[in-house]
Computed example of a mutant assay.
Amino acid sequence: MKPSWMLRLCAAVGFAILLLPGVLVLIVSFSAGDFLTFPPPGLSFRWYGALLSNAQLMTALGTSAILAAIVATVSLLLGAPAAYAIARLDFPGRGVLAAMLAAPLLLPTLVLGLGLLLVLQPLGLAATWPGLVLGHCLVAIPFAVRIMTTAFAAVPKELEAAAWTLGATPFRAALRITLPNAAPGAIAAAVLTFLVSFDETVISLFLVGPRLSTLPVEMFRYAERTADPLIAALAMTLIAFALLMVVLVERLIGFTRAIGRD
């Protein structure tokens, strides 16, 4: 049954409300003025050029990119085995394990950030790479586990059983049969955990230092002390990057296939 015109109208209004702030930021990012004003006094690419020449923001961008890549790798290495156990194995406490791995998503990031600071500061890990990786993994691993659990569950168990009958050990069958079939989910999990880490702000505010800072934190600090369109240009650049990542996953494997729902 086709949706009614009223439902379509409500959906269109909802999308317009959600997209309107982004459209305003896009227009302001091309402002020729010196301040954040709408409508802009003119259009120019000057703030995109200023963004590229801002050494502090570019350094923070490199830090965030490296950090997000490390977090995505660690999240997959730790999350995939846990997801396999939850999706494919039957053992006491499986539900408890799944709940514990999802627990960080139920807590406010403000609480997580403060708790991490109190734990990591005495250990000398605050404002360090290991501390940031640990903090970001705390919120990234649950996403990896959720996606990989769905991807593993979608692989028919008969495939592993057939490999067992041909002499493969359970570990080899999982490695050679189940994991390749769940690879689209792994790609989606890697992209999502990369974006989660790259965009993490609150936890990073507690864990960064004067010599080690991430891009979201520097954006926050820049917006506090300066009110020019450079921050809008940076915001649109990050939105475009996130959209590009999503489109690439959709074009290469499709999100439905990526989460194991063919």
Rank of each mutant, 00 (worst) to 15 (best):
I86E: 05
S64G: 11
P81T: 09
A80R: 08
A69W: 03
V71F: 08
A69Y: 01
P92K: 07
A82P: 04
L78V: 15
R88L: 14
S75P: 13
V74G: 10
A72G: 12
G62E: 00
I70T: 11
A99G: 13
L77W: 03
L78A: 15
P81Y: 02
P81G: 10
F91E: 13
T63L: 04
A85Q: 08
L89E: 11
G93T: 09
Y84G: 11
R88A: 15
V71T: 12
A87K: 05
T63Q: 06
A83E: 07
T73H: 00
G62R: 08
V74K: 02
L76E: 02
L76T: 08
A65Y: 01
I86F: 02
I86N: 02
I86D: 07
A87T: 09
P92Y: 00
V71M: 03
R94C: 12
G93E: 05
G93C: 10
Y84D: 09
L78D: 02
D90S: 15
A83N: 12
L78N: 09
R94H: 08
A80M: 13
R88M: 13
V74C: 13
V96Q: 10
L97F: 03
V74D: 02
S75N: 10
A65G: 08
L97M: 15
A87C: 06
A68M: 04
M100I: 14
A80S: 13
P81H: 03
I86R: 02
G79N: 02
I66V: 15
A72Y: 04
G93F: 04
R94S: 14
I70L: 15
A98F: 00
L77M: 12
A68D: 05
R88T: 14
A65T: 15
A80Y: 07
G62P: 09
G95Y: 02
D90H: 12
R94N: 14
S75V: 09
S64H: 01
D90E: 14
R88P: 14
A83F: 04
L67T: 07
P92Q: 01
D90V: 13
A65V: 14
A87Q: 02
L76M: 09
A98H: 07
A99Q: 12
A98M: 06
A99T: 14
L97I: 13
P81E: 01
A99L: 10
A82W: 07
V74M: 04
A65R: 08
P81M: 03
G93Y: 06
T73N: 03
S75I: 09
A69I: 08
A83I: 12
V71H: 03
L67C: 09
P92C: 04
V96C: 12
T73P: 01
G95W: 00
L77Y: 05
T63C: 05
V96N: 04
D90I: 00
A99S: 15
R94W: 07
Y84R: 14
I70Q: 06
R88Q: 15
Y84C: 13
M100P: 00
V74T: 08
A72N: 01
A83W: 03
S64Q: 09
L67N: 05
G79W: 06
I66E: 03
F91S: 15
A80E: 06
G62I: 01
R94V: 14
